[in-house]
């Protein structure tokens, strides 16, 4: 049978197909971020801030939840030091992302710097998983440019059109929730290690109960510490497991 004869370039072709599929999935995120961006733009003008504030934050900060917080802070005329500290707290989770984000697949310092700048939750979730179909290099940059462009254009449209935008549109922001749920299921199915997912879920729910306003950073750092503890107590088994996976 022809099927049984594997040509030498087949594995490469297989992962190229998988990458194309991941890239297609990534475009759903553009839609989701555009819709959320519109919502953000509407909030900015409703707070009495100028429309260009939404354009500036979405273009130069590119961190959804922080931008909502910032819009609130500037209407209260918070000090720049307070803004710096709150930004640090809200976005410190990104420090952990660098461990698994394939920035080394980009050529040149500009591409690397941009990829780090645009390392939003959505890009991380998409790239960190994916196994063989893991996006890298140019494809990853395209996904990030698309995420950036969707968020910024959504925010601009929302800020300019304001209340003309039908409320029912906001429901489409569910695209992003659904996408994170799907990625989490795929991660659990791919790793065949349910305990890590259960640990993360417990940590997330507990963090929400204990510290709802800073849930993400509390949950992610607690998860990191627990993983370290688990590794140092059961290291032998875990390293055997990783070797098998690789």
């Amino acid at each position: 049978m022809i099927d049984e004869v594997k040509s030498p370039d087949e594995p490469e072709k297989h992962s190229e197909d998988l990458r194309r599929k991941t890239f297609a999935d990534a475009r759903i995120m553009w839609l989701g971020l555009f819709v959320l961006g519109v919502g953000f733009g509407v909030v900015v003008v409703e707070k009495g801030l100028p429309w260009w504030f939404a354009v500036l934050t979405s273009t130069f900060i590119l961190a959804g939840s922080l931008e909502f917080v910032l819009a609130g802070l500037v209407t209260l005329h918070s000090s720049l030091v307070a803004i710096a500290v709150i930004t640090l707290l809200v976005n410190s989770r990104h420090v952990f992302y660098s461990l698994s984000f394939p920035i080394e697949t980009h050529e040149g310092p500009i591409a690397k710097a941009y990829s780090a700048f645009a390392m939003v939750d959505e890009a991380y979730a998409l790239v960190a998983l994916g196994g063989e179909g893991r996006l890298r290099g140019r494809q990853l940059l395209k996904v990030q440019l698309g995420l950036h462009g969707s968020w910024a254009s959504g925010a601009t449209v929302g800020a300019l059109l304001g209340n003309l935008i039908p409320r029912s549109l906001s429901g489409f922001g569910f695209v992003l929730t659904a996408l994170f749920v799907v990625l989490a299921i795929d991660a659990a199915l791919d790793s065949k290690d349910l305990s890590t997912g259960i640990l993360a879920s417990l940590v997330a729910v507990l963090s929400f109960v204990i510290a709802p306003s800073s849930m993400l950073i509390v949950a992610i750092s607690a998860f990191f510490v627990l993983l370290l503890l688990r590794e140092s107590t059961t290291g032998r088994f875990a390293s055997k497991f990783t070797r098998r996976v690789q």
Binding site: V181, A187, A188, T196, A200, M215, I220, L227, V245
Partner: peptide, 15 residues
């Protein structure tokens, strides 16, 4: 290798 799996799960619950 376990970090992305856990973080994506946390992001899903957060969403």
């Amino acid at each position: 290798s376990s970090m992305p799996y856990g973080i994506v799960t946390i992001l899903a619950i957060y969403a």
